[in-house]
Design a protein around this nucleic acid. Structure first.
Length: 717
DNA sequence: AGCACGCCGACT
DNA sequence: GTCGGCGTGCTC
């Protein structure tokens, strides 16, 4: 009987393709192996996801798998199932998810090389070529290049079309070759000594048990999927995680610990190292690629029982994972990067697929997670909180100027006592925009259509989205009028502080002042030494964990976050304030000051009081009253494209299809996205609201064009 | 993502 | 009149 295989490819194509399995590859083609397949006129690395005995319904003529790249599958059945669901619910292709689970070297790439034929060189010498053709011939000479290189050199030229024409005329030769065809069957490093893992786990260390966390250990003992949300301070959570990892080691299982950023991953890995010894692999973006591949192999060979890392670690090739830990559950950075998926969703799906425990933790979890965990009875609250001695809220409205008199006094007091201070202002540059006082002209980015930010340091106007910068104009290009600066940025705060404290050493801490990682580290070290007394910082500073506790932590204008057009704005503001206030926790007499135009807003009041409960109650009420998640599910579909006409039409058709599909789903838009244009691409969005996530997924599954392509979806529930 | 097919402006 | 731009659609 003929055998067939279903294959996914690492392209933004949300389909499974069926191939013929030639007789010679019968035994070798198994679910989870990498294969080389003809795809269009290319040869691609694909992943076999299942075998079939039928050619499929639609009578397409099937192609044959050409090569099997693995002797043993790189993906097991639970991983295939998990990645399929993750891809479907994240609206990205299965093949791309699988690709991102492997080291880059596992993708065999087809190399295309272009060279001039003798005939082509001849014609070129005789001047018988068109303008474009001549240029290409000159570029090639007697050498060989890839089409990508050629199109980089010949900007704005359709190289593929040009090459096709020249190839058909016999002027150039286009050759394709595939590298590294042998299945990777490197000599398996002899069985890891069975006791290597055992050796490093220290079971004698005290356990962190208590009534609150007992259910977690019980469920781990019982086996199978269960989830928990741990709300509590970092130290308590870390202790619980380490205890869980010990338990996992005792059961000869493995675990994944996810953190939102490289810095927190490192910090945890170090703590783990001192408490458990070298059982962990560390995977994040700042680990060099070769090292990452080694770590990946260590995990795959079962020589590691814990993987610590940022989101990529979720896809690590662990055998027998018993626990998935997602720390700082509330962090946004769990959403970004491509392929774009929500790590919390991913961790839940993988834990379900593997029959493992999902443990999420945070000191300030999202109200969505708290709501669900309360309802499901899996919220675990740990005692203790790091609160600053005092937090004062200052009404900015009473004062003109960036630094209120109250804040200036507080700063002076802290400095007089020999203390240090941090001042947070989360806005880069000197002024948010320039406005002509005569004609009201606002300089905007040509490609992104948002106001350009004035950077006084460099004397430039910079686009906050695409980074393009140009010299700041002296006068309005339209009417030669004078410009006025609007909206103070961090440079203006630094300037105001220098005026107030001319003799105090201070520095700005933002990505413009300190571009390189090393410079940022150096400034933190100088601050820690006491060589700097005040740091003025953006979010970049707020996310550091290595800044010593200060006498005064000041936050300027947190209401800017509340003004964002996003139902989670309150939550984000609370989390940001929590993070920033924390900088004075632990210092002798440490205090915080929030200078805001909205001193009575419940988010600012509860953040100042360190009262998460109160915040969560009010925020949850607000969500309930306005029908936002977790009391509904929302989705945002963003379409991108080169022309507004094209994207607009596509969006209109999609919105119509969505409205027709299910009248119980609210469809808003299409409208220009909050960021209407990025790097020259127009962005149009459609928002959806429905009773639950299932309704959203159902309507999108039925209405999205099967091509997928230039559109991204985020779902909130 | 590539790559081909198909419809409207500036040049041999 | 064609060459050549990119909008649209497909890849087993």
């Amino acid at each position: 009987m003929t055998l067939f295989a279903d294959v996914v490819v690492p392209l933004p194509v949300e389909r499974v393709f069926r191939y013929l399995v030639p007789e010679r590859l019968r035994g070798a083609v198994r679910p989870g192996v990498r294969v080389l397949v003809p795809f269009g006129r290319r040869e691609l690395t694909g992943f076999v996801v299942s075998l079939a005995e039928e050619p499929g319904p639609d009578g397409v003529s099937l192609k044959e798998i050409s090569v099997v790249l693995d002797a043993d599958p790189v993906f097991g059945p639970p991983f295939l199932a998990f990645s399929r669901d993750l891809a479907r619910l994240s609206y990205v292709s299965w093949g791309e998810v699988l690709q991102s689970a492997l080291p880059p070297s596992f993708l065999v790439r087809e190399r295309t090389s272009v060279s001039l034929t003798p005939a082509g060189a001849d014609v070129a010498r005789k001047g018988g070529l068109g303008k474009r053709e001549r240029e290409l011939a000159r570029l090639l000479g007697s050498r060989t290049y890839t089409p990508a290189h050629l199109s980089r050199k010949l900007r704005g030229v359709d190289v593929s079309g040009l090459l096709a024409r020249m190839e058909s005329k016999g002027l150039v030769q286009v050759r394709k070759s595939v590298g590294a065809l042998e299945p990777r069957r490197r000599p398996r490093p002899q069985k890891p000594p069975a006791d290597e893992t055992q050796l490093v786990l220290d079971f004698r260390a005290g356990s962190v048990r208590g009534e609150a966390v007992d259910p977690v250990f019980q469920r781990l003992g019982a086996g199978g999927f269960a989830s928990f949300l741990i709300r509590g301070p970092q130290a308590g959570r870390d202790a619980l995680y380490v205890a869980l990892l010990r338990e996992v080691g005792a059961r000869s299982g493995t675990a994944v610990v996810l953190h939102p950023e490289v810095a927190s991953t490192r910090a945890f890995a170090e703590r783990l190292e001192t408490r458990l010894g070298g059982v962990a692999a560390v995977l994040h973006g700042e680990v060099p690629e070769a090292r990452r591949e080694r770590e990946w192999r260590r995990v795959r060979e079962g020589r590691v029982s814990v993987v610590c890392g940022t989101r990529a670690a979720l896809l690590a090739p662990l055998a027998r994972p018993l626990v998935f830990i997602v720390d700082d559950e509330h962090e946004e950075s769990y959403l970004q990067e491509r392929p774009a998926f929500d790590v919390r969703l991913g961790a839940r799906l993988r834990a379900e697929a593997e029959g493992a425990l999902l443990v999420m933790g945070s000191e300030v979890p999202t109200v969505e997670s708290v709501h669900r965990a309360r309802k499901g009875g899996w919220l675990v609250e740990l005692p203790g909180e790091e609160r600053p001695a005092s937090v004062e809220v200052v009404d900015a409205g009473r004062d003109k100027g960036l630094i209120s008199a109250r804040l200036a006094r507080a700063l002076a007091g802290a400095l007089a006592g020999g203390g240090q201070a941090v001042v947070f202002h989360n806005k880069r540059g000197y002024a948010a925009s320039l406005v002509c006082v005569q004609c009201a002209f606002i300089p905007k980015c040509q490609r992104c259509e948002i106001p350009l930010v004035l950077h006084k340091r460099g004397g430039t106007l910079v686009c906050p989205l695409c980074g393009e910068s140009k010299p700041a104009p002296i006068a309005c290009p339209r009417c030669a009028g004078r410009f006025q600066a609007r909206g103070a940025g961090i440079e203006a705060v630094e300037e105001a502080l220098r005026r107030l404290f001319p003799d105090i050493p201070l520095a700005s801490f933002d990505s413009d002042a300190l571009i390189r990682r090393g410079d940022q580290d150096a400034v933190v070290r100088r601050f820690a030494r006491g060589a700097l007394k005040i740091l003025v910082g953006t979010e970049l500073l707020a996310r550091r964990r290595d800044v010593p506790a200060v006498s005064l932590a000041a936050v300027l204008a947190p209401e800017r976050i509340l003004a964002r057009p996003d139902f989670r704005a309150g939550q984000r503001a609370y989390q940001a304030l929590h993070r920033m206030i924390r900088f004075c926790a632990g210092a002798e007499g440490g205090r915080a000051l929030i200078q805001t135009a909205l001193p009575d807003h419940f988010v600012i009041r509860s953040a100042a009081a360190g009262d998460y409960e109160a915040f969560c109650r009010e925020e949850t009420d607000f969500r309930r009253l306005l029908g936002y998640p977790p009391f509904s599910a929302m989705a945002e579909v963003v379409l991108e494209g080169g022309s507004l006409r094209g994207v607009g039409g596509e969006a209109r058709r999609l919105a119509e299809a969505l409205r027709r599909a299910d009248s119980s789903v609210e469809v808003l838009g299409p409208a220009l996205a909050a960021v209407p244009r990025v790097r020259g691409l127009f962005r149009v969005q459609i928002a959806l609201r429905a009773a639950d996530r299932e309704a959203i997924d159902a309507i999108l599954a039925s209405s999205l064009p099967p091509g997928g392509g230039r559109l991204s979806v985020s779902v909130f529930s």
